[in-house]
Design a protein around this nucleic acid. Structure first.
Lengths: 343, 343
DNA sequence: GTGAAAGCGCTAACAT
DNA sequence: ATGTTAGCGCTTTCAC
């Protein structure tokens, strides 16, 4: 009489494969992980048994026993920002052949959410953590310091990191743009961006930008901020608003390309002479800009490259190895495009 | 003389908290999970000890012991497609207060990668799986069938699902658009889209579209396909190409809003009378369209809603409960915008 | 309200 | 080349 398993829906275990193939659990485990010497004969037997049963190993048990987890926690503020999916894609590409897998957590720019997400992630004992920004709650920072795994803070190098850091200096990026604008002869400059209580990188760009103008004896003449909604539309609305209030502005600096694109479209439709009468610039260097009527001036934020390098650091760190502390600063490239006049 | 831990970098365990607080491991565990009756006094003692030590529970061990994992696997083709981050955001919002956490895997539209990612995910024994599309490799389908957890296939209802399905009918969406276009009096119609060997939803829209035209005795007059690159730019290039080849086309149907937007910009710049001389439509209903010079006709693909409903199904299924098999079809809404003439 | 014992499914370390 | 033993850190179950 045939024996039936007690519970037909019980997930299969190594033991099931062992029994089906007549090979010890240990050897089955070796085959399934390609470890140690196993004769071709048993190898085949085991693999066949595993296949026909439809066995899927239990990584939870494996991770507990081996004390290693092939996951890398990635914590970012948003997925709708366009920038972060690109960073992710760099991470994911670099991790491709390392056996490591990214696990994504989203904070919605909220420090308390970041803390929760980080706690949650660390409780899975990942092989490393990649986290956006240098600003964290005290508790989050403490967790990162005691995580016992490599930590890479990305996007931003203006400040002190916990372990490794990969990013650009947003402060210098802002300053750079200011210098280019001043050099091109613009004098009455407006700034448009997100409300940025928690967008530290946008804030730093703004600060650097202001400093850059200050060195030329200038200051930002007017500002306009938004939150939520379609960025392209907001760009239009804000542009109209700031120019209505301040018709003599001769340059508009947008804190991201999306609102910049909206502004550009609005200016062209309303007959502004871009870049002679009015110059425009954004930030990020997104693909989208290539399809616009004119190429918006921008600065490449090296997003994919940041992801790659961060992943490289995690993957390159021997398990438990804590050499750490590299700081990699990438250089954003200014692209003048067609919206800053050349002279 | 004080005792020092053998390895100062060893992650803390329940036992450490137990010793520090003078409470048994079991009770510590209860406090940390808010389970069972614990006196307020010990509660406070334990929480304080855990806090000062900086204890982070080990979910791997917890999951192994309890046989439950608060993760939901989400498998999608891409993160750069704009559509999927929105679905994700719906999932993530719905899961917010359920204690469940999404874990994302990306397949790059490759069936073999999908299989790998799914295998990887199932090996963590998640509480459920949400996966884009109805088309999978045989092996992947077998894994889904035997996963022993709720599975929701999303985006598409045109075909047979493994368990639950939430999506729209792309075939009918395409047909609908065809009907609207014919009703508006357009007759020479071009189709522009991605090369779609693996984009089954785009293919189904195209098929439905062709069927819809056929019913009016019409057919697609010309097609243009692309892959990779800036979609906005591709939209321009393809539009130029198809109109150069076929100047008498009076309607262009784009398989996504991004290339549609590029096409719209190109047409306006080149003096086409939209929508009288030439009608345009895209697909998805993305935010971006709101900022364009004209509102591109489109069809909302209900992305966030799909995410929400899928997550709701997973969250609502009692642990191990296998009632399953719901099919939820959402109705995409046609928005005529300003690029289909009204008569 | 609290604790002790057993074991989740796997792998490290050691046999043989 | 293969098998045996002893946990990994937690939760379940049952006792008190």
């Amino acid at each position: 009489m045939a024996r039936f398993p007690a519970d037909p829906r019980r997930p299969l275990t190594l033991r099931d494969v062992s029994e089906a193939s007549g090979v010890s659990e240990m050897t089955v485990s070796r085959v399934l992980r390609n470890r140690g010497d196993v004769s071709e004969a048993t190898r085949v037997k085991v693999l066949e048994a595993a296949r026909t049963l439809g066995y899927v190993p239990n990584k939870i048990a494996g991770a507990l026993a081996s004390q290693r987890v092939n996951l890398v926690g990635v914590i970012i503020p948003s997925l709708s920002n366009l920038v972060f999916p690109e960073v992710l894609s760099g991470i994911s590409a670099e991790l491709e052949d390392t056996g490591l897998q990214p696990v994504v957590g989203v904070t919605n720019y909220r420090p308390d959410k970041e803390e929760t997400v980080l706690y949650e992630m660390l409780s899975w004992r990942p092989s490393g953590v990649i986290i956006a920004g240098l600003e964290h709650t005290e508790a989050a920072r403490a967790m990162l310091e005691n995580a016992g795994v490599p930590v890479v803070e990305i996007m931003d190098v203006d400040g002190a990191g916990v372990d490794s850091v990969v990013g650009i200096s947003h402060r210098r990026a802002g300053r750079h743009m200011a210098e280019a604008i001043v050099a091109a002869g613009y004098r009455k400059i407006g700034f448009l961006g997100t409300k940025m209580p928690e967008d530290h990188r946008a804030r730093k760009r703004f600060e650097g930008f202001s400093e850059g103008l200050a060195e030329a004896g200038l200051a930002v003449s007017d500002t306009e901020f938004y939150s939520g909604g379609s960025a392209l539309l907001k760009g239009r609305e804000m542009t109209q608003a700031i120019l209505a209030r301040n018709p003599d502005l001769d340059f508009l600096y947008y804190s991201n390309d999306m609102i910049g694109a909206g502004g550009l479209l609005w200016c062209l439709e309303n007959g502004y002479d871009v870049p002679e009468r009015l110059g425009l610039a954004g930030f990020n260097g997104v693909d989208l800009l290539e399809g616009l009527p004119r190429r918006l001036a921008t600065m490449d934020a090296c997003r994919r490259e940041i992801g790659r390098k961060a992943a490289e650091i995690i993957a390159g760190r021997p398990h438990g190895g804590m050499i750490g502390g590299e700081v990699i600063e990438l250089e954003p490239v200014l692209q003048l495009g067609d919206t800053i006049r050349r002279r």
